[in-house]
Amino acid sequence: MSDTADITALLARAGTGERQAFDALLPQVYERLRRLAHRQLAGEGAHTLSTTALVHETWLGMVQQRGLSFADRSRFLGYAATAMRHILVDHARRKTAHKRGGGQPVLDWQAQELPVEEVAAGLVSLDGALNELAELDPRLARVVELRFFGGLSVEEAGDVLGITARSVVRDWRKARAFLHQALQDDA
C-alpha cells in the first residue's frame, strides 16, 4: 500500500474517532507539515515562531477539533494550510498590536518565503484582502490559501478543490490580480 493510501486510511479511521489511528497519523504527515511550515517561516527575521512551533500548534488545534474528518491526504493538507494561515495571521496581529506598522516592510505576498516578524503588518493586510476576496469568490481565496499559505502545488490544490490544474492556474492569476489591487488600494 502506498504512503498516500496509508494516510487516507488513517484519516478515515481517525475521522471515526479512533485515537490509535490519529496517533499513527502524526508520524506519517509530520515531515510534510514541517515542509509546509518551513516554507511559511523561511527567511530572515522569523525567529519567534519556529517551524516546529507552527507544526505543533497546527496539530494541537486539529487534535482538539471534535468530529474532524478528511476524505483524503489532499483535503487534510488543505485544512492544515488554512490552520497555518490563521495561526500566522494571529501571530502577526499580536506582533503589530503595539507597533501598528511603524517601519514595517511591505509584504511581497507572491514571494516563496514568508518572514513573519518582518512582514507582520503586511500579513494582516493580506488577510484582510483575502477575506474580501472570499466574499466575492470563495474558490479564488481558497486557491491563495492553499498555494501561498499551504505551499501546495497546482495539482495538489486542484485535488483539494476538486478542479483541474488548469483551473487552479487560472484562479491563481485572477486572485493575484485582485490581491495586488486590493493591497495597492490599502497602501
Rank of each mutant, 00 (worst) to 15 (best):
W59Q: 10
G15Y: 06
D3P: 12
V63H: 05
R166L: 11
T51Q: 01
G43R: 02
L136D: 02
T16F: 06
F149H: 06
R85F: 04
L152M: 09
E57A: 14
R93E: 15
T51W: 02
V144R: 03
A129M: 08
G45F: 07
F148D: 05
E156F: 02
L161F: 05
G101K: 08
R19Y: 01
A80L: 08
T96F: 07
E145T: 05
R176E: 02
S50F: 00
V168A: 06
A121H: 09
I163C: 06
L41E: 04
V89M: 05
G61Y: 00
G15I: 13
A53W: 05
H47N: 11
S125T: 12
G103V: 00
R35H: 09
P138R: 03
D171M: 14
E145Y: 01
R176Q: 09
L26Y: 03
I7Q: 02
E118I: 13
S50G: 08
G102E: 14
Q28M: 15
Q40L: 11
I7P: 00
A53M: 13
T52L: 12
R85Y: 01
K174G: 04
K95Q: 15
G101L: 10
M1I: 14
G158C: 07
I7D: 05
D185M: 11
R142A: 00
Q112W: 11
F149D: 04
K99C: 15
L152V: 04
Q40M: 09
D108A: 15
E113Q: 12
A141Q: 03
R73F: 12
A165L: 09
T51N: 01
H38I: 08
D171L: 15
A120C: 07
L54N: 00
L25A: 14
Y79M: 11
R176T: 13
N131P: 04
F149T: 03
T16E: 15
G67W: 02
L10I: 09
V89F: 05
P138V: 00
L11W: 04
R13S: 14
D159F: 08
T8E: 09
E117R: 07
R176G: 09
I163Q: 01
Q181C: 12
F76H: 08
R85A: 04
A134R: 00
E113H: 09
L107Y: 02
S167T: 15
L161T: 04
A92P: 03
T4Q: 14
Q104P: 09
E155N: 11
G67C: 12
M62Q: 11
G150E: 04
T82W: 06
A37Y: 02
L68M: 13
W109L: 11
G61V: 01
D6W: 12
G151D: 04
Y79W: 06
A92T: 05
G102H: 13
T52G: 14
T52N: 10
V154Q: 04
H56G: 10
L68W: 07
L11N: 01
E117A: 09
L161Q: 03
E57L: 15
G15F: 04
A5C: 08
E31L: 15
Q65R: 15
R66H: 13
A24V: 11
A42P: 02
